[in-house]
Amino acid sequence: MHLSKDQRRTDATAVGNLLLHLPNFLCSLFVVALVSAFFGDFAFLVILVWLASGALVFHRPTESALARRLLRLRYPTPQERAKLEPVWRMVTARAGIEGRAYELWVEDSDSLNAVAAAGHIVGVTRFAMNQLPNGELAAVLAHELGHHVGGHAWSSLLGYWYALPGRVAWRLLKAFSGFVFKVSRAFGCFGVAFVVLFMGGIALATISTLYGLPLLLLGVPYALAAVGRRAELRADEHAAALGFAPMLAAVLDKLHQQEQRTAAELAARNGGTPVEEGALAKLLSSHPDYHTRLHHLQPYLQPGR
């Protein structure tokens, strides 16, 4: 095993992800600044603590808590570890990566899936671990390793973390607006019109004061989804470059069949009419479709590669 000098890096996809989270970060900073005003002389300290909290993304105990609570992962049993670790060592040896820098976790799920989370977690579903041949399981793990090596996992979590105060404030604002709108309906059309004009005036004043920057937030989810799809292709290329292209193609075929079965079930519930995915839903998808991913793998599937 030859250890690569660059164990991980921050590629263009990770940088783009961080830049796209900048509007969310600024909104969260504004929210935190408003909340910190209630702490008087300690307001600046509250802001500094929040800014420094991003380091928790790389804190192992915090990562473990997130893995358990948010991702529903668990540590593998001794039998599961005996299955996973030899495959993981093969992948990391090919990549020249120190495998002990990462932790293997398991999700109790009957779907074919895996995840790269935070800075050091690689999780696979119980189905993927038990049903995939070792070569295909290695391809899945190599794909997730690609997310870590490229910096996709930590940059996504860091962006999500710093966007959290803004997201919470937005949900509270939506709930309050809905409550006010329901109350205004009791006063008839005049009450509704007054509330709409009042809140519209506040929104317009905010957008004008901030030179239209809040409008950027409307496009951020679509841009982040596009970057996410690019990150998936980069991770596919990482696995393919390690020699797992045929195995990864086989896994993609299984995923495609899984999607087709799900679509058939939805159509059956809908009286036999296929449920078509809308254009906006496709733009918000975090993963490329099967044909796109397979197309990008073609150069690695050619004879002689």
Rank of each mutant, 00 (worst) to 15 (best):
E98S: 14
V106Y: 07
V251P: 00
S286K: 10
Y102W: 10
T292R: 11
G228W: 06
T10P: 00
H143N: 08
A128T: 07
G304W: 01
L104W: 00
G278S: 06
L45V: 15
R167H: 14
L19V: 06
V106Q: 02
V168T: 10
R305C: 10
R293A: 06
E136R: 15
H143C: 03
E265N: 08
L266V: 10
E107Y: 12
F198P: 05
L255R: 07
W105V: 15
A240K: 03
R9M: 13
T62S: 15
H238L: 02
L210W: 02
Y75W: 12
F176I: 11
S53F: 05
G99H: 04
N270Y: 11
A250W: 03
T13Y: 11
P86T: 06
L84F: 07
A264F: 09
I97D: 00
G272E: 09
L210M: 00
H291D: 04
A235W: 00
G96K: 13
R269T: 07
Y102L: 06
P246Q: 01
A43N: 06
V140D: 08
G96W: 02
G304K: 09
E103Q: 11
A65E: 11
A226T: 13
P133K: 15
A268V: 09
L233H: 06
A65K: 13
H148V: 08
L173K: 13
T10K: 09
M247I: 07
R100T: 11
T13K: 14
N113I: 00
L280S: 09
G135V: 12
A279P: 02
T13N: 09
V115G: 07
S208C: 04
